[in-house]
């Protein structure tokens, strides 16, 4: 991606997002101040929603204008690997599509860019303008709606911001979980890293299967690395967790976020006084498996969670 494009967009991205959302934590909805904010925010939301409904050209123009880009400025985003994604493929990419995208983008997207919501929004502008997200006329299904429900403008706007790169209200986790294209890249990247760090115990495909199996478990896995106080950032620690999860997935057909959390805690305790880059793999395995409670090995029912689940909204963050 062209650096000057990123630079321009980054300078205004935060203010643009903030101007589109009513923050119920900051303002009481029925207070004078809250009403005044809603009166400012609602027309902006409607402008965005109309742009989505008007199609790829209108939406591209709207986004370029609000991010300070020229109308014909080349963005240079990494290309999608298929001519056009379906709504289901976009909202919940199957593991094969994640692997396809991951392989294609591996050398084109750095860790730094992949962690930035504005990067993924710029990618979306490129993909939208090239009509890679479905046929004209159904962008709303991709970016605003869920199923057949017709939510209010606040929900549609938040859906848009989450899906196109992540919403500031959800903090660091949003880019890893809410933007499915970013999530695909991260799962592929981590599955490669885990396979390399596992000493042959876990293949890339198996690691990816584990990371793809359950969204709350994925979020827990990432969140424990995002918080620097929890020392499970080292690839060997991640490999130890995924190795155990792979066994559970095979024997029970599913995994649960509590299992990920317990393993993370076990490894964090080990990491307080030990370098996770140096300890024997047996110590990592013991720390991961020993921290699990026996009643947490029951299989989970279903692997798909609703998009607007509150597990890791900022208000509920543990």
């Amino acid at each position: 991606m062209i650096e000057s494009v990123l630079d321009k967009a980054e300078a205004v991205f935060g203010a643009w997002q903030r101007g589109l959302v009513f923050e119920s934590k900051r303002y009481r909805k029925h207070s004078d101040k809250g009403q005044a904010v809603q009166e400012k925010v609602r027309p902006r939301q409607n402008e965005l929603i109309c742009a989505v409904r008007d199609g790829p050209a209108a939406l591209g123009q709207y986004l370029r204008q609000h991010l300070g880009l020229d109308c014909d400025e080349d963005i240079g985003a990494p290309a999608l690997t298929r001519p056009a994604l379906t709504v289901n493929e976009y909202l919940d990419p199957p593991i094969e599509l994640e692997a396809e995208l991951g392989r294609a983008w591996m050398d084109k997207v750095s860790l730094r860019r992949a962690s930035q919501p504005v990067f993924w929004l710029l990618c979306h502008i490129d993909w939208i303008e090239r009509k890679r997200l479905g046929a004209a006329g159904d962008l709303g299904q991709f970016l605003l709606l869920k199923g057949t429900s017709e939510p209010d403008s606040e929900t549609k706007t938040r859906n848009f911001l989450r899906r196109t790169g992540g919403i500031f209200l959800r903090g660091k986790i949003s880019v890893f979980s809410d933007c499915t294209m970013a999530r695909a890249w991260w799962r592929f990247h981590l599955s490669r890293q885990i396979a390399a760090a596992s000493g042959g115990r876990v293949s890339r495909e198996t690691a990816h299967r584990v990371l793809h199996a359950n969204r709350p478990a994925w979020e827990t896995f990432v969140l424990d690395s995002l918080r620097r106080i929890v020392a499970v950032s080292h690839p060997r620690a991640r490999a130890a967790i995924v190795h155990q999860l792979a066994r559970i997935l095979e024997s029970h057909g599913g995994i649960k976020k509590q299992q990920v959390r317990h393993m993370g805690i076990g490894l964090a305790r080990l990491g307080l006084r030990n370098s996770l880059g140096h300890v024997d793999r047996s110590a990592l395995t013991d720390a991961a498996s020993g921290a699990m409670q026996s009643d947490d090995t029951r299989p989970t029912s279903g692997t798909r969670s609703t998009e607007n689940h509150d597990d890791y909204d900022e208000t509920n963050r543990v």
């Binding site: 860790l111 660091k172 995002l226 620097r228 950032s233 690839p235 880059g277 140096h278």
Partner: peptide
């Protein structure tokens, strides 16, 4: 020496 960047999940010793 451990290097750790939480935002990019980067970690190395």
């Amino acid at each position: 020496t451990e290097l750790r960047c939480p935002k990019t999940l980067f970690c190395r010793v």
